Amino acid sequence: MSIIGPRPILWNQFDLIEERGKYGVNDIYQGLTGWTQINKKDEIYAKAKFDSEYVNKMGIAFDTFIFIKSIQVVISNKGIREGYNNMNI
């Protein structure tokens, strides 16, 4: 596992495993944060699309950009939250 890369997925997310496999995403190291997370995508095909973009663009400069952007997303507290309906409560 690395710091930057596609997030690990659950073993039972068969659709996502298959979709990511088409783009070679399953063949690289998984990470704690990635392109999909800073773009706040949580839908299967959107995840696969952003993960495939990462595979095509991965490198030191892109990883540094994702790392800095991830810190900004965490500090702003405006990311995807499981089970949260995005209403201001």
Rank of each mutant, 00 (worst) to 15 (best):
residue 30 Q to T: 09
residue 7 R to P: 08
residue 79 G to W: 09
residue 28 I to P: 03
residue 58 M to F: 06
residue 24 G to I: 03
residue 81 R to C: 10
residue 53 E to T: 01
residue 12 N to L: 04
residue 73 V to I: 13
residue 65 F to A: 11
residue 35 W to D: 06
residue 78 K to W: 00
residue 81 R to S: 13
residue 45 Y to D: 14
residue 21 G to P: 04
residue 3 I to N: 09
residue 84 Y to A: 08
residue 60 I to S: 14
residue 3 I to S: 09
residue 74 V to E: 01
residue 8 P to D: 04
residue 39 N to R: 07
residue 71 I to R: 13
residue 87 M to A: 05
residue 88 N to L: 07
residue 44 I to V: 15
residue 42 D to V: 08
residue 38 I to N: 11
residue 66 I to E: 10
residue 18 E to P: 00
residue 45 Y to Q: 14
residue 80 I to H: 07
residue 82 E to I: 11
residue 71 I to G: 13
residue 43 E to M: 03
residue 68 I to Q: 09
residue 25 V to T: 04
residue 88 N to I: 10
residue 60 I to K: 13
residue 75 I to L: 15
residue 77 N to L: 09
residue 7 R to W: 04
residue 16 L to P: 05
residue 4 I to Y: 06
residue 72 Q to P: 00
residue 28 I to H: 00
residue 5 G to L: 00
residue 10 L to F: 12
residue 35 W to N: 12
residue 45 Y to M: 14
residue 6 P to T: 00
residue 25 V to W: 00
residue 73 V to W: 03
residue 48 A to Q: 02
residue 87 M to L: 00
residue 72 Q to M: 10
residue 32 L to Y: 14
residue 37 Q to A: 11
residue 47 K to S: 12
residue 50 F to V: 13
residue 2 S to Q: 03
residue 67 F to H: 11
residue 17 I to T: 09
residue 83 G to H: 04
residue 43 E to K: 06
residue 23 Y to W: 07
residue 54 Y to T: 07
residue 1 M to E: 01
residue 11 W to C: 02
residue 43 E to T: 12
residue 7 R to C: 04
residue 60 I to Y: 14
residue 54 Y to M: 05
residue 23 Y to S: 10
residue 77 N to P: 05
residue 34 G to A: 13
residue 48 A to Y: 02
residue 49 K to S: 13
residue 5 G to H: 03
residue 85 N to F: 00
residue 87 M to W: 03
residue 77 N to C: 06
residue 67 F to T: 15
residue 22 K to N: 04
residue 70 S to K: 13
residue 83 G to I: 06
residue 59 G to L: 01
residue 8 P to I: 01
residue 47 K to T: 08
residue 5 G to E: 10
residue 24 G to M: 02
residue 27 D to P: 02
residue 50 F to N: 11
residue 87 M to Q: 11
